[in-house]
Design a protein around this nucleic acid. Structure first.
Length: 264
DNA sequence: ATGACTACTCCCAGTAGA
């Protein structure tokens, strides 16, 4: 089965792209970030028409995440535990049943954190700690799960065109990368890096200054697999081609193929 | 280089993104 993630930078601007991409890549489950609208405003009909169940956790103007699944959801839950005061719509998990057992998919939009000397950065680091705490709890179940989304983390120098330009940025600061490694050190696998060491496998190119044309990109959209999901990893990829479409998102989709049997 | 581009919003100049 195929699981994918994509920061669409406004679902209302990008619904035609999402429809074309769903037909092309045909994920069983897709995680969307930055839908930038309320649940009521989400254009669910054209997506449901392709056979997807749609669950959203949106808010006006900013953030917002959605889960699309061809398999029915046993359960879905918005919000990352660990801070009742956090009202930003950045997390939505869903559970689907497989032929044997279940698979949990967490769709996340991790805070950007810039500028680093402000509370935006401390919010990012706290959010990453909450994500680690969440992962520790889920790992105890020994059931397969996936953290999929826009992590706003450049894990390593080979994941950025010009590392020197990013050394003081919240996406690449040592403490940010350390917090990302804290996740992988728990036993979660960076799916793309499990299948290739190739540098420059980017998922984001800025709209400005011809970044796409110069391949001035960064790899910040990731899929982290629990041990029981990683055991089933067949391959992973990046749908780079959508960045060349007309009026694109600045991010492109990332996906994994997992050898799980589905029901029916 | 206080830039560049895109999308949001009390509909338009200000904010946010990365």
């Amino acid at each position: 089965m195929r699981i994918a993630t994509w920061n669409v930078n406004s679902i209302r601007q990008r619904v035609d792209h999402v429809i074309s991409w769903l037909k092309e890549t045909a994920p069983d489950v897709a995680c969307l970030q930055e839908i930038k609208c309320t649940d009521e405003a989400f254009p669910r009909e054209p997506i449901e028409a392709l056979g997807y169940n749609v669950v959203t956790h949106g808010q006006k103007t900013f953030n917002g995440v959605a889960l699309l699944s061809r398999l029915p959801f046993d359960e879905t839950r918005p919000r990352l535990e660990g801070d009742e005061e956090d009202v930003q719509a950045r997390f939505l998990e869903g559970i689907v049943s497989l032929k044997r057992g279940v698979l949990r998919i967490a769709c996340l939009y991790l805070p950007n954190g810039n500028p680093p000397e402000t509370e935006k950065y401390s919010y990012k680091l706290k959010w990453m700690k909450r994500l680690a705490d969440y992962s520790v709890e889920r790992l105890k179940t020994e059931e397969p799960f996936i953290l999929a989304g826009d992590f706003n983390v450049i894990p390593a120098p080979e994941d950025v065109h010009n590392p020197a330009a990013w050394v003081n940025d919240a996406l690449f600061l040592p403490q940010t990368r350390q917090s990302f490694r804290a996740l992988t050190n728990l036993g979660l696998t960076d799916a793309l890096r499990a299948v290739t060491d190739e540098p420059k496998r980017y998922t984001f190119w800025d709209y400005q200054a011809g970044a796409w044309q110069k391949n001035n990109g960064i790899r910040i959209d990731h899929m982290l697999l629990s041990p029981q999901a990683s055991d089933r990893l067949v391959t992973a990829g990046i749908d780079k081609q959508v960045r060349a479409w007309e009026k694109p998102s600045d991010h492109v989709p990332v996906w994994v193929d997992l050898d799980f049997e589905t029901k029916g």
